[in-house]
Each structure stands twice: as C-alpha cells, then as structure tokens.
Design a protein around this nucleic acid. Sequence first.
RNA 1: CGGGAUGUAGCUCAGCUUGGUUAGAGCGCUUGCUUUGGGAGCAAGAGGCCCCCGGUUCGAAUCCGGGCAUCCCGACCA
Length: 515
Amino acid sequence: MAKKTTGNNDQSKSTDAVVGADQIPSHTAAGQEKRFVEDLADKDDFAQWYFEVVRKADMAEDSPVRGCMIIKPYGYAVWEAIQQGLDTRIKATGHQNLYFPLFIPMNFLQREAQHVEGFAPELAVVTHGGGEELAEPLVVRPTSETIIGHTYARWVQSYRDLPLLYNQWANVVRWEKRTRPFLRTSEFLWQEGHTVHRTEEDAEAETLMILHEVYADFVEKELAIPVVRGRKSDSEKFAGALRSYSMEAMMGDGKALQAGTSHNLGQNFAKAFEIQFLDADGTRKYAWTTSWGASTRLIGGMIMVHGDASGLKIPPKVAPIQVVIVPIWRKDEERVLVEETVTTLERTLRASGIRVKSDWRDNKPGFKFSDWELRGVPLRLEIGPKDVQNTQGTLVRRDTRAKESVPWNSMVARVQDLLAEIQQSMFDAALRFRQSRTYQVATYDEFKMRMADRANLGFVETWWCGGAACEAEIKAQTQATVRCLPFERSTDASSGQCVYCGQPATTWAVFAKAY
RNA sequence: CGGGAUGUAGCUCAGCUUGGUUAGAGCGCUUGCUUUGGGAGCAAGAGGCCCCCGGUUCGAAUCCGGGCAUCCCGACCA
C-alpha cells in the first residue's frame, strides 16, 4: 500500500525507510543518507518512490483529466533537451520535419487490419464538432501511419520521388487502462518518423540506421542509459509491421523499459493506402515504408535508471541546470562579498556555455543542498565567506557527493571536466548495474527463480524456440515477456534448446518484466 | 472490465462507530524578528460549497439512498 510520508513521521517510520534501501542504487553512507531520505517514499516500494520523485523534483503533476499529466517547466526543459538531441540526429541522417493533423478519419484506421485491431481498444474518438454530430467520427491520432500513408500515396509517383524521409514532433492519445507519469500517459509527446523506400533493403537499412545512429546513440551518449538492441518477437511487434526493432533499458528495479522502436512496415501500409510508384523498369510497384518513434517516456527511463534515495540524477548533457551556485553568508557585509563573487563566477560559467543558476532564495544552505539534489543537478558550487577569502569555490558532485575546492581561475575548466566525468560515470554505473542483473539461464526452473527474486530482478537471457505458445505460457506463469531478440548474443554456443519446451531453439532471447 | 478502498484547507491526513454551538493537526503560504558551510526558531495571520444530488431529523462532515470521481490489485498495454 502507498505509505503517506509527511513531515511528522515518527522515529520508527523514518528508520524503516532507511532499512529497505536495497532497491535503489545509492552512493552514500547509510548514516548520512537518513536525513535526505525522510521525505521520499520507502525505497523498497519502487513505484511509490518513482511517483514521489516525479512530483517533488518538480517534473510533472497530475492533471484534471485522468491519465494525463501536466509537465512542469523543469520537466519540460528535459524534454526540450531530448528533442534537441534527437532532432539533431534525425536531421543529420537526412530527414526533414513536417506536421500532420491531430484528427484522423475513422475509416483510415480500418484499412490496415492488424493496425486497427491493435489500436481500436485505446482510441479516443470525436463524434461532435461545432455542436453537430459529425458524418464520420474522427479519431484523435494514436500514431499517424494511416493519415500519412494516405497522403504519401499522392506524393509518390516515380522511383525518382524516393525515398521520402520525414519526421514529425507531435502529441498522440492512447486511452490506456493504467497510467503512470511519463511511462504511460493517455496523451504523450513524441516524434514519429515516416519514410518511404523503393526496395525492402532500403527500408530495412533505414529502420536499423534509426535504431543505431539516432536512438541508441542519443540515449547512450546523452541520457547515459545503456540499451540492448534487437528485434521484437511477432507478438510484441508493432500492429501492422513486418518487423519491429527496439532498444530496451533496465530500470533501477530490474524491469525493462522499451526506450525506442523502429519498424519496417514492409508493404502493408503501402498496399492499404496505395502507395505505388513507376519504377525504372516501367512497372508499377508498391513502396516499402518505415516508422519509428521515441517519446516522453524517455524521461521516465532517465529517472528510473539514475535516481537514488535523494531523488533525481540528471545526466549533465540533458540537465536543464548543470551547475547550481549556492551562496552562503551570515552578515550583510559577507553577503555583499559573496554576491560579487557569485555574480562574476556565474557570468564566467555561462559565457563558456555552461547552464548555471544561482540560488538566492531565503532558505538555509542545507535546505538548498537537499533541494537541488532532489532535482538532480549534476554539480553544486558553494560560495561562502571562506571561499571568497581563499579565492576558491567548493564543487560537489551529485552522483558521488565528492567535494573539492577549486580556484576561481580554473573553475570553468574544472566544471567542464567534472560534467564530462559525471556523464561517463553515470553511464558506467548504469551499465554495471545492468550487467550485474543480467542472467543467462539454461532451465525453466532457473528462469522462474530469477523472475520470482524481486530483490535481484533483472534480464534473463536464454534460448527460445520462437513459438508463440511458449512465449504466452512463460508470460502467464512469470509475467516476463520477450523484450527482444538481441543483435549481440552473450553466449558462444551456436544453438541450444528452448528454455520452456525443450525443442531446438531458433533464437537467443532477452526476457524481462516490463513497464 | 472484475476485486478492494477512498473523497474534509494548497499537500498529507484526523474527526464519522455513538448526529449537537464558531470543523482540527502537521507541512506549505503571508508578515515581522532572530537565523544561514547539510532540510531553522519564535510570534502573529490568511486559507473550508466537509465530492454532488436527494432523504431521515429540531439539528447531518457524521445516519440512509443514488450518482460522480480518484487510487490500489488483477486483466489489458505500439
């Protein structure tokens, strides 16, 4: 059950909160940690911890509409950084942005059988407009393959028109039964790329290029989240796709999060929407299309991968604030001196392209330390009378809490070094965690044991026959699903037996409980 | 859609069993003073259609009926 934590916790409750510390990676000593943790949820309740971090770090809050969230400025700034990182890569690989309408005629969805079957249960439908009932209901887009396919059919006439390489930034609506901030909301923000190609090879190359060079590159280098890349099983692939690929990240509780997907749609949508072209050989052919998307869910992933008992840890490259300056003073004349130094340092750091903010709020320094740690700012710079006297500043890392005194004249260089170091060390820590929680199993008993061990939950890698029946049985019994058939196998063996049915395996697979 | 629970101050909640003047606490907020190198203290304030509709009653946050909403557990989830 959700435990309510308020300021008037009794002593025993606070103590309990520290004891259950095994779930969330922490780099702090237990004794020191206690103070920081008293307002966050018990850490063995990961779901509750997640919800409180989102709210208390000022990322997002509930909205009057069920399942929808209000993204607050601090959370939206992270989204803007994600947008920028992805958009840069999308454009660098030859794509252009455009925009399609929010509404889609109902019959468009129905033209691709698997697509409508997959999305029908979660559609929001508009039946009235301007006070009158519409002749045909409009669907609020759950994704835009159909309306874009309909349009591409006109845009594609000749092989010379190909490829079409377009992307749009948009909001979509999927009426989910169960929602969580950022991870699964009824409305979410994303980018969806939609491309058209002359051949299957071209479409396949596009699909994989996006997965590797756009998605995985961004998520690993900027969000500091290591991912497992691979193909989706048939039951998990996109509704209407020929093949789906994804990258899967491990959260702090050992569950998997699909962090981005890229689909080779084959000719399914081309046939449904008559996207045809006259090829060089004079024959009329159906085109090959792809689609790929990454969403605000990435923010949830970032929180769940890096966060600890003190709150958020935002990787420096996407942190809205990279350095927060906390001024410290007692007397007014001290404040004057400190203010002068802070202003100068702030200006210098900003001029070097560092995102910096000074905190002049009327609170004690200790409050501010905790507050900015909760918000995950990578570096804190303390400036007090002692620092002014010694012409130095005190830098404190969010990830390790390591403190050091740095002379003013080398501050910019040291900050830049530390930001790079934190970025790398956050990725390394996440990778180590994933490796420590990734298990290769040979028997189904071992498989079940791993999925039942909540404290050490993680990814299970094993052989699988590829059969939907085994996949469904495993899911029913353990809640684990095939996350992907990874490109890189962590085994030397060239073949094996299906972990469930014992028949000769066709593939090596990563199983996990998933968000 | 099944099972369970809950709607009282900005937030987290107490009060309801056993109906009775002006409905409470902590946190937050406002003002003042003192504080400030790891979550400050004191004082004075502001803040309520007690989810909605109806019923019982001299009298309803409290009892009864109906409705709505939200949360949790399942099922579902590109």
